[in-house]
Write a protein that binds this DNA or RNA. Sequence first.
DNA 1: TAGAGTTTGATACGATTCGTGTCAAGTTAT
DNA 2: ATAACTTGACACGAATCGTATCAAACTCTA
Lengths: 118, 118
Amino acid sequence: MAPRHGEPVFVISVAARLLEMHPQTLRKYEREGLIAPSRTTGNLRLYSDRDIERLRQVKYLVDERGLNLAGVQLALELTQRLRETRLRMGQDEAFCRDMDAVLSLLGIREDSSRDRTG
Amino acid sequence: MAPRHGEPVFVISVAARLLEMHPQTLRKYEREGLIAPSRTTGNLRLYSDRDIERLRQVKYLVDERGLNLAGVQLALELTQRLRETRLRMGQDEAFCRDMDAVLSLLGIREDSSRDRTG
DNA sequence: TAGAGTTTGATACGATTCGTGTCAAGTTAT
DNA sequence: ATAACTTGACACGAATCGTATCAAACTCTA
């Protein structure tokens, strides 16, 4: 998995600084299955832009909404499901407004169609 | 609020037995804003069928999915939002299937259109 | 390849949360 | 009235979460 354009990768210290999180927190989140950064051949974690964005959502849910990690896990599942549904029903204006409101409850700021490459 | 047909009310000991929960747990959930049973003039809690159903969802989210109460709060908000959206978009078959799948993730067993009287 | 700085996985600790137990005072129904 | 129940307050043990520490391994620069 070579790093593609628009998807730079960060080692854990850089990711932690970007997110204002403790590196140990990022490692714990990975152990809990909330995130899965890629690895170098030497086994160092490499966080992509998308990983960072996902972790920002996690941070919001934990810090602002007070969820535990089980709640975050569920929120992430719901986010993916609703994104897919929103994509499939993209032509309906009113529906998209509803769905964006729901996604914002889940900590998604601005989305409006997201490719699920990978 | 006189008890209407189809909405019997239970005192806390009965509700707790029905749900297999501790009465103190029900009181704590009320303090946290997860449920709001009606009261007698003597201030006794009275749980309706709808309250029981809601508490069953809470129990699922806590016991089976491991959410904390903040997570349950969010899940309940999402449930209401998505039920409303589903009602408004009721004619679309595929959408309803999607939405039911999402609602089942939130601990809603079988719904298929719910009136929000109150 | 040598060495300084970083990462990794494991372990541990304090704070917080959650379910439950207890208790005195008030309520309900016989 | 009196027996059973409910209420609100307080407290306790277990679990969770973020963080700290540490030795071993890795990465980068020279």
